[in-house]
Amino acid sequence: MMIAIDNLTQKFSAPDGTTVHALDRVSLHIQQGEFISLIGPSGCGKSTLLRIIADLITPTEGQVLVNGKPAHQARQDREYGFVFQSATLYDWRTVLKNVELPLEIMGYGKAEREARARDMLRLVELGDFANKYPWQLSGGMQQRVSIARALAFQPKILLMDEPFGALDEMTRERMNNELLRIWQQLGVTCIFVTHSIPEAVYLSTRVVVMSARPGRISATIDIPLAQPRGPETRDHDDFFHLQSQVRAALREGAGEKVDERTARRVGVDG
């Protein structure tokens, strides 16, 4: 077993004194080499879950174990590559130097740094842009640089927070295929946040559906579509069938919440 998430609860206290229940007893076990998509309404805690897994925030309760060791240790061991919702490139570094950044921090030699960074840029089809500065790239290109940067040090776990949210449909599909190729080639474990049902189904081995207030996992749907996937996958009957399944689970998750709210209102009135 690879990542064991057990009973995670995360509460944030807002400045006005109220408490936000971002995650409520979330448990999820992920096998090595899986591709997990997190999908759910805005504010249901997807980014928070990703941050806790990466040990960027410490949960109020519960724990994350990566191959038996705490998330903190896994972060110290550089097992996480994180792709944020926005590209977060450093303005003062060229594209190549941005991809080299994690390698610099981890103490790789100059020659190896550059060779690896160039490889990764080729992987995301930006080999010709190595010496450009971030502002000279489109939003989609910047996001691809940030993916190259996350892959440069070959982390075992790739955490991606809506990496393709800002891309047009065509680029997005191409990036999906590239991501699948990279995933299979490198054998990384991926946890991927998205708002797109087709994207989640196309990429994943498992789709985790979340509901909001408090953030919970409302369903987990296996995606047994054949590997490797490609354009023909998108025409497969199962592809549509599974999308409907995810959509239904999302609706059910939202429905529960409505029920709860009605119940509460009734309670107050009575």
Partner: peptide, 26 residues
């Protein structure tokens, strides 16, 4: 930005690395 700091933390960068590679250039 908090995101740039989180990026550094995800690499388990030291205080000094954050200073020299992020704060000072910024």
């Amino acid at each position: 930005s908090p995101l740039q700091l989180e990026l550094m933390r995800s690499y388990a960068a030291t205080r000094w690395q954050i200073l020299f590679k992020l704060r000072i250039p910024n």
